[in-house]
Design a binder for these strands. Structure first.
Lengths: 253, 253
DNA sequence: CGAACCCTTGATACGCTTCAACAAGAGTGG
DNA sequence: CCACTCTTGTTGAAGCGTATCAAGGGTTCG
């Protein structure tokens, strides 16, 4: 219903928070890191080579679509490197981000199995490298290598759990709770101080708000409230958690 | 965090709308109908027998939990017959239904693959028969029968798509739109009248509201609004759609 | 410098929940 | 059979939470 445009530029790509440094190195690396895509224990070298043989790799410029909602999915899509926003593009070219993937990760591992169209639009935020696995060839590979099929099952199971929790939070948690939960989820524990932590925001705050199902204004106010309460301290894209216990308590309710 | 109670009765099971008739027959049938669980084309007879050999079947009385949030999942859980509510049980024994399965269907096909706990509580609404597939044995079976693994992949892919759409609607659609979308989704087309349809509610309205992420009062008001507009006509658990086109329009926005 | 982008803050509107009361139907026991 | 209870659905009034609209400041980039 919205896949009319072919491959036009979606205006200039949005500004992105400063990279964490390690990512520039990753971008230079051309091979697909299947271990990180599949998750769990590192796959065997033979499996990786078999997948590499199947994968058809292409580059997408920043601001360009990787795939569009409504387009028939014939391949499993992997993001090799770069950042991609998944969501539904409105008529004005505006994108409401529902998920943001970066580094090696699945972009759509499910639509192809159903033989249906993609449910979301995917737009590159940075220059991006994408690998695609044709469904037919992949099925043949899975017959030879059952271990790979199991890895794929686990990947989808992870996705199901993520989405189940997400849907639950959207239904039954209010905006402050969702934000606290989101922050608590990506706290990096500090060795010396068990009640403190740091969260580096790798995306624009408005994108985070979009993923949490709230307006950027609302999120800004909630961040202000949290820092007024002394729970966090915000400085640009760095959030210092001053009272991790309190944050977890807010995330629970 | 909430799996303290062992297997206590959750008070009396809630009242359920009148069955559609065909279901009583289904309950008498003891075998697992794998075709309906897996979806798509009917699986081979050999596959079905292999699954039956693996399945450990048990009965659960109405009102009793099938599994609990927080309990380690070691098996894939299939609902053979009966109705089960999936959601999160509050401290007061009250259940906020997030999904309601009936007839042959998966209850949880993902948690076991992750080796983690169930994310939701499952409580039988009617007398229920459940089949469980131990993960270890199933993996052995999948090595022998790759076709089964593919069927499982497709099942999980279907679940991913369902949840993706659901999360999208919760984020970006308001309550009237979600209700219209829900109704339009389960319209049975009437042969003679292309713009009319009938929806038989198989669940309590409050359960439908819960699945749509709104309060029962809100849903009641919205149903009233729709019938005031002449879009639908409500009589108990029967909803007659008088203007299918209008309903679809309301569901889109 | 101006332009574009992003975040923030304030004022206001509105959707939905909450609380409370009531009607209708189903099951129960005298 | 009727009185009684329990459950569900409906309706009303009030309040909270979040979206919306509008404006301003900080930063980056051409």
């Amino acid at each position: 219903m919205s896949s009319a445009t072919t491959s036009t530029v979606i205006a200039r790509p949005p500004r992105v928070p400063p990279a964490t440094g390690a990512r520039a190195v990753a971008s230079a690396n051309a091979v697909v890191r299947w271990g990180e895509v599949l998750g769990g224990p590192p796959p065997s070298r033979a499996d990786c080579e078999a997948l590499d043989a199947l994968a058809s790799v292409r580059n997408v410029a920043a601001g360009q679509p990787v795939f569009a909602e409504g387009a028939l999915a014939t391949t499993l899509v992997v993001l090799v490197c770069g950042d991609v926003a998944l969501g539904l593009a409105g008529p004005g070219g505006a994108m409401r981000t529902e998920r943001l993937e970066h580094g090696p990760a699945w972009l759509d591992a499910s639509s192809a199995w159903l033989g249906t169209a993609h449910v979301l639009d995917a737009i590159a935020l940075t220059p991006v490298r994408v690998a695609e696995l044709a469904l037919g060839a992949l099925q043949g590979l899975l017959d030879e290598r059952p271990a790979l099929g199991r890895r794929l099952l686990v990947s989808l199971a992870r996705e199901v759990r993520r989405l189940t929790v997400h849907a639950h939070e959207l239904m039954h948690k209010d905006a402050p709770t969702r934000l606290a939960s989101w922050l608590a989820e990506r706290c990096l524990a500090e060795p010396g101080a068990p009640n403190r932590a740091v969260v580096q925001l790798a995306e624009r705050k408005s994108d985070i708000a979009s993923q949490l199902g709230m307006m950027p204004e609302t999120m800004s106010r909630l961040m202000r409230t949290l820092s007024d309460q002394g729970v966090i301290e915000v400085e640009g894209y760095t959030v210092r958690v001053l009272d991790l216990q309190a944050l977890r308590r807010l995330a629970r309710a």
